[in-house]
């Protein structure tokens, strides 16, 4: 794809209008860290770009009693510096912090990560773990979809042509409820996840886990919400045996591939280790929030 036409709409309505009404392939751009690289690889096919970064609401966030409402194009560097968000959603901030280098974080956004819909995207399991929802807007109006239902395949999601992601919405976690995200890479930085795990747990005052969500990444065509792993945690004190059970459930749920980043066997094992470790981090945070 070679960019032949660049548009920078000032409003969502203008952007939606631009998404339909062209016979050239049209893509929205947030940070562009995936799109620009993709556009270089197949230089022949023409591409029309709609840059969303000039739309104020796409770049902003709000956090109140209702929770987090995030403009999907805010860059990760800005997002990870939001201390109020980090207090409540440390796992999501961790995931955003892991995307690429400092330089990449200066451009890349959570919305872009979500819409690029890579199986290895770091923020997707983290968003699923905290029950995040996508508000999608198009010519036909608005709709809201849970993140676990948003991504439908490798590089594919439920958005129809002419639609765009307008907002990412997350409920405010109660005291006793916190998240964590861990991924595994061969180096310490600059790699794509071999496997990832996003966890949120809710503890009551006795330390009993009353709710949990376990999401795993890079071990299937899409990030998976693993109910069986959460079930292994709910009703327990998140003791070693229960956590091990959750890890085993996550490994069992994984259906990874072998590629240049890892083998089936290794990914299956690693995702269990990550679930175990991330659960313990989430547990500690949840206890501290009580």
């Amino acid at each position: 794809m070679a960019v032949v036409d660049y548009n920078a709409p000032q409003s969502v309505q203008e952007a939606v209008a631009l998404l339909s009404g062209s016979d050239i392939k049209t893509k929205v751009m947030a940070g562009g860290t995936d799109l620009i690289i993709q556009s270089k690889s197949q230089a022949v096919e023409p591409l029309r770009v709609v840059d969303l970064k000039h739309i104020a609401e796409m770049m902003s966030y709000s956090l109140d009693d209702g929770g987090l409402s995030l403009g999907p194009c805010m860059c990760c560097a800005e997002f990870t510096a939001l201390h109020d968000v980090e207090t409540l959603y440390p796992g999501l901030v961790e995931a955003a912090y892991l995307i690429g280098s400092t330089q990449v974080q200066g451009r890349a956004s959570i919305g872009g990560n979500l819409c690029n819909s890579s199986p290895a995207a770091d923020t997707i399991p983290a968003l699923i773990a905290i029950g995040a929802k996508c508000r999608i807007v198009g010519a036909g109006g608005e709709r809201t979809v849970a993140v676990e239902d948003f991504v439908t395949g490798v590089g594919r999601n439920c958005m129809q042509s002419g639609e765009l992601l307008q907002r990412i919405l997350v409920a405010r976690p109660a005291p006793g409820s916190r998240d964590a995200y861990l991924r595994f890479i061969p180096r310490t930085e600059m790699d794509i996840a071999v496997a990832g795990a996003g966890i949120s747990v809710t503890l009551d005052s006795q330390g009993v886990c009353t709710a949990a969500r376990v999401a795993i990444g890079a071990v299937a065509q899409t990030a998976l919400l693993v109910a069986s792993a959460a079930d292994a945690l709910i009703g327990t004190q998140l003791d070693d045996a229960s956590v091990a059970k959750a890890a085993a459930a996550a490994s069992a749920a994984a259906s990874p591939i072998t590629d240049r980043r890892g083998t089936i066997e290794f990914r299956r094992h690693i995702v269990g280790v990550l679930v175990k470790r991330a659960t313990l981090i989430a547990k500690e945070r949840a206890q501290a929030s009580l």
């Binding site: 180096r187 310490t188 600059m190 794509i192 590629d259 980043r261």
Partner: peptide
């Protein structure tokens, strides 16, 4: 890293993993 067809699968710094400062 080569595929069975002899094609190179990691022709970039993303997957040809040279040490970075934090390593």
């Amino acid at each position: 890293i080569y595929g069975a067809d002899g094609l190179l699968e990691n022709a970039g710094f993303l997957d040809y993993r040279i040490p970075v400062a934090s390593d």
